[in-house]
Design a binder for these strands. Sequence first.
DNA 1: GTCTATACAGGGATAGAC
DNA 2: GTCTATCCCTGTATAGAC
Lengths: 220, 220
Amino acid sequence: MSPDASTTAADRAYDELVTGQQDQPGRARGPYRKSSERRRQIIASAISLFATRGVDGSSLRTLGEAIGVSHSALRHYFASRDELLVEVYRAHEHTISDGGAQPPLGPVSTMIAGARRNRSIPGLVRLYATLTTDALQEQHPATRTYVRERFRSLRAQLEGQIREAQRQGTVAEEIDAADAAALVIAASDGLQIQWLLDPEEVDVGSALSLLARILPEQGA
Amino acid sequence: MSPDASTTAADRAYDELVTGQQDQPGRARGPYRKSSERRRQIIASAISLFATRGVDGSSLRTLGEAIGVSHSALRHYFASRDELLVEVYRAHEHTISDGGAQPPLGPVSTMIAGARRNRSIPGLVRLYATLTTDALQEQHPATRTYVRERFRSLRAQLEGQIREAQRQGTVAEEIDAADAAALVIAASDGLQIQWLLDPEEVDVGSALSLLARILPEQGA
DNA sequence: GTCTATACAGGGATAGAC
DNA sequence: GTCTATCCCTGTATAGAC
C-alpha cells in the first residue's frame, strides 16, 4: 500500500467517472450529485460492518439488511461491490491525510512512514491489494481507472520529489526519476504483500530503507 | 511475477498440502496419489480453454461442459477453483524452467530476465497477481500456503546469491541479504502490476535495473 | 430518484449413486 | 474412487413500483 498522498488527480478522474460529469465551476454547488449524503451513510455502515465481520464476510445482502434495505438499493448508489470498496478505502485514506500536516520527507522516508502506519491496519492493506488486482481484470473498468490514476498521480508526485533532490545534488543525475518513482512504489506495495503473508519473515521498513542507497535523503 | 526459479520447497509443501501426505521414500512410487492422470487432463483442458475464453470467462461449469462432466467432478480433483489456477500457473512455470539451462545470473539480472519473458504472457502475470492477493484472504488457506512457501523459497534462493556476492566483494557487507532479497522480489512483482495497468508509462526492466546500484553484478 | 422483486450465473458444499 | 444432483450464498442485471 502506498502512503497518504493527496491523490487529487485520481480523485477527480474517479469522481468524473462515477458521477459522469466533470466538476466544473458553474454548477459546483447545488444538488448536481445524487445523494452523496446517502452514499456516505452506506459507506459508514460498510466500514463498521467490515470492522466486525471482516470484508470477506460482508456481502451486499448482509450490509443491506443491516441498513434496512435490499441489496439492490446499494447497487443504485454503487455500480459494483468494488466501487463500494474503493470508497471505503478512500474514506480511510482521507482520514489519515486529515490527521495533521505531513512533514516534507523524502520519497523513501515517506513510503516507510506509510508502511509503518499500515502495520496497525492489515485489513486495509489487504483491501488495497485486492482492489489493485481486481483492477487488472477486464471486468472491473471503474476499479481499473481509479487504481491506474492513483498510481499515476503517486508516481508523478514522487518523480517531482526526486527531480528536486537531483537539482539539489542529493540524488545522482543519471537516475531516471520516473523509473525510480515507480520502483519505490512497487517495492512498498510488494513488500507489504510479502509481510501480510509472512509477518515474522519480512520487515518492510528495513527492506525499504535499502532504497536510500539509490535515493539518499538528508535526514538519513 | 517472479522468475522461473525451481521452487522445490514450495512444490513439496504444496504437494503435501494437496495430497495430505508427505512424499516420503518407501511409498514414493505406487498409486499413492489419486489419479494424477485425470488431474493433468483437466489442467490441460483448462489451459486451452483459458487461452481462448480467458481466465475470467472460464467458469468451472464451462470447463466441465467442455470436458463432458459436471462442475462437481472438477471439485473432486481440485478443492477449489483457486487450486486449479495454481496448478495452471505451476504448469506454465515448469514449461519455462524446462526450456534450457539457466545461465547463472545475479539476482537483479535474473528478475529482469523473468520480467522480459513475462511481457509476452500478460495473462499469466495477471493470474499470478490474482493468486497472490487471493492468498491474503482467509478463505483460501491452500492458496495462502502455496504462495507463502513460494515467496519463502524465492527469498532463500536470492538471499543465497546475495550472500555469495558479498563473499566475493561485489555487494557491500552492510546490506542485509534477507532484506535485499525481499526487496528485489517485491520490486519485480509491484512493477509488473503497474506495467499491466499502464504499459506505456512503466518500464519494468529499466526500473529494476536501478537495483543494480544496491546489488552490483559483474555482468552489469 | 429511490428502491423492491426477481432471475441468472458463479463458486462452494453436501448427499448419495455406482 | 469417481461423479451427478441439488442446494446455498454470492455479485450482477433487468423490470418495474412509487
